[in-house]
Design a protein around this nucleic acid. Structure first.
Ligand SMILES: [Zn+2]
Ligand SMILES: [Zn+2]
Ligand SMILES: [Zn+2]
Ligand SMILES: [Zn+2]
Lengths: 452, 452
DNA sequence: CAACAAGGTCACCAGGTCAC
DNA sequence: GTGACCTGGTGACCTTGTTG
């Protein structure tokens, strides 16, 4: 067979082919249908078979649903070892290694980061037989106050996220959606743009007002158990008091994001509970520097204090993230859409109506892009990519944050925290019989990027 | 020793090839693998007594499966040290030293070369327990859905796949496509990333081996017709011999790009014939400088020689292009997608199914963008634009190259060129005479790792 | 029960070590 | 610089426990 001979005249000068020599020519473009056929039968199998599920972490063949994520045996084992032992991984490069099957073992740090990023968590385990409808385990128990806050209202002009046809229609919808989200943000944010601008410089000069007003003095005290506990109690109180109003704002904001309040109540709760910290920290980033986090009342908390409340890597990550946000000089319109996309994340564990949230998220991303485009910035894709990077970083922080609350959950009895704060972070409160508090998972604590 | 002028005079007219006198770095691959280690393939079966598995590099007793190859402790350690430090080896002889246990420490260059040739690579490591059941890899060559989607010609699949939205599905497809293309590239490229890195510096120090030592003295000699013809004959021979193995690799690569082999045969041939030079030159750019083009056997060709083979502007353009590519520090993953987009260019003349190729090209561009994004580079759009510029430059070169072959096509009778080379560049070739043609470098079907 | 996932197991290999 | 040897991480299987 003359593979070269079939070429159109325009391409061929002399269609002579020496079959003798060109044994490569024969293996060339020839058949090879044997292999492609055999793999088809192996893969497709029955109609609609779902044999080829890739690992969400590395893309290898997944062996099942491990720690809340479809993953392979390797990543499963790796994640298990990582959370069992207190392993501090470290990236030898910039912390952005690509994690694929071929090189997943080159950088443990980035592999673990990817595990967290795709949602792996000890809390996300699902035991027993797989449910018919996608459903997972989360502490979705009764939530009196928070539930009440969410209410039942449907006052927003929710544009149905059903069918979208034309590009222009899509653009129209994106613009409308953006407008609604921006308004919702403006009505539920303590900061005006001017306020942010005025505080921007102040953040640098504001003295760190120490929160330990318990009179124990020595800030570098050896942190004996008692002293440390007292300090922590005061710290958490001061932080919680200043954080709690934002919970209210974020809930109100979420309610006004079109489509949010038609979601199942449980899903709404999950989105708020798991998304709040990311949104809060992003808001903080607007006026915080890389040395401190500044609250809206002018008080700030510095790295030392954060390292006391959380662990050192996480504190550093928090500050790195706020510094990143700060550096981006995000406009309030962008912050509105960014917050919405953080909240309406379809990846949260336990969501029952993932499809709808995915659709919502897509619409929000379009609106986000619209806002960025309209802002007149030169390089829109770069800006969107910067937000994507920030989103990933925020997601990792959000996942880790849950584990950072162990001390609070263990010492809830000595803490004085606003009810809403305790609820949103699953911290035990009085009147609840909770002898199992000690059975909470121990802190995996892991590793955290340190780069700026 | 002068490689480029090293063709015996008797070869100029007579078709008898004496490859013994000429460097042929790639021949050793074939020689070794086919003769001494034929039964090596049986090790994967693992049936019964497999007592003495020989090292694929030196034949010593292997200690296991290291870097994707059954090898001994010595070669394992040698390869590890070679890729850890930036060691540049150099062969003191002709680059085809036999590597066996007794003399494996005689020439590091040839030992490392052999390691690479038998498939040693960081990407090929196999961790953990050896699978008892033959492993089913998702990626690699099994992508029925992807192929189907690409084959239909609609880059935006609308069919419902599980519970994925269109956007993430498209991203999923891009990722899968990228994975397949990258695997195809890795399996069909003489250079591993480690090899490129190790050769990178060497390119600078390699001396330009001049071609004119034919005794005519003055290098600026007026190049009388006969002299020039002899020089050109030798030059073309040496270049062609070193270029030809890449043809096979590019063909194999193309065949593994999803959707390629469902194209009409004629279109496949057109794409390869018109795209090969661009892909080849891009590959060369990885290890070439702006002064020379370096082949994988360590020999290089400089501007003067290029100007002899082609014309002066084209030679300059070639070197400018390789310099550009070199400067971009393209990763192997990027090279994979870049090569694919070069090959699957819908603009080639004579294509019958342009629509399908256009769709393929679009999908590849998405996968390309995905790879660049995932690489963690800061400015993705700028990077993509750089590749777009390179693509345009390559296209111009590809078009011009066809005209640069005039001398070859006119003087085909005095030339001795590999059949495949003549075919892909439409250089006339004598009828199937040559009983000696079988002495041609046997098809280097070499070097494909293919671990089990 | 059957299906399914966490955790354990231990055959494996990358990388380091240190007499040569 | 080499390679026999060691240590620690890896992942294909296996065991144990949970859930429908
Ligand atoms: Zn994995
Ligand atoms: Zn890394
Ligand atoms: Zn060996
Ligand atoms: Zn040598």
């Amino acid at each position: 067979m003359d593979v070269w001979g079939g070429i159109p005249a325009s391409c061929v000068h002399a269609p002579t082919l020496n079959i003798e020599n060109s044994e490569f020519a024969l293996t060339f473009i020839d058949k090879e249908t044997t292999t492609s056929q055999q793999k088809q039968e192996a893969d497709s199998a029955g109609a609609g078979g779902k044999a080829a599920a890739p690992c969400k972490v590395c893309g290898d063949k997944a062996s099942g649903y491990h720690y809340g994520v479809t993953s392979c045996e390797g990543c499963k084992g790796f994640f298990r070892r990582s959370i069992q032992k207190q392993i501090e991984y470290r990236c030898l490069r910039d912390g952005k290694c690509l994690v694929i099957r071929l090189n997943r073992n080159r950088c443990q740090f980035c592999r673990f980061k990817k595990c967290l990023a795709v949602g792996m968590s000890r809390d996300s385990v699902r035991y027993g037989r797989v449910p018919k409808r996608p459903r997972e385990v989360v502490s979705s128990e009764s939530m009196p106050d928070l539930t009440k806050n969410l209410g039942v209202g449907t006052p927003t002009p929710t544009s149905s996220v059903e069918e979208m046809d034309t590009d222009s229609l899509q653009l129209e919808l994106a613009r409308d959606l953006a407008k609604v989200v921006i308004t919702a943000h403006r009505n539920n944010d303590a900061y005006s743009e001017d306020y942010v601008r005025s505080m921007h410089l102040k953040a640098i000069i504001v003295k760190t007002e120490d929160a330990d007003n318990d009179g124990n003095g020595g800030e570098e005290a050896a942190c004996s158990g008692a002293v440390r506990a007292n300090k922590l109690t005061a710290l958490w109180y001061n932080v919680a008091v200043r954080m709690t109003p934002t919970v209210q704002q974020v809930v109100e904001f979420a309610k006004r994001v079109p489509g949010f309040n038609v979601l199942p109540q449980d899903d709404q709760l999950i989105l708020i509970k798991l998304g709040f910290f990311e949104v809060w920290l992003s808001r903080m980033g607007r006026i915080s520097s890389e040395a401190t986090i500044l609250f809206d009342d002018g008080n700030s908390i510095d790295q030392t204090q954060l390292e006391l409340m959380y662990d050192i890597p996480f504190a550093k990550s928090m500050l790195a993230y706020t510094a990143r946000i700060n550096k981006m000089c995000i406009t309030e319109d962008e912050m509105a859409l960014f917050s919405a996309t953080l909240l309406l994340s379809p990846h949260r564990n336990g969501l029952s109506d993932k499809d709808k949230i995915t659709a919502l998220h897509m619409s929000l991303m379009e609106a986000f892009q619209f806002v960025v485009t309209e802002s007149g910035i030169s390089d829109v894709p770069a800006r969107m990519e910067a937000f994507a990077v920030a989103t990933r970083e925020a997601r990792v922080l959000g996942l880790q944050h849950n584990d950072q609350l162990t001390w609070c959950r263990l010492n809830w009895q000595r803490l004085v925290l606003p009810a809403l704060f305790s609820e949103i972070f699953d911290i035990p409160k009085g009147e609840e019989e909770d002898p199992e508090a000690s059975a909470l998972p121990s802190p995996p604590s892991c590793s955290v990027p340190q780069q700026g």
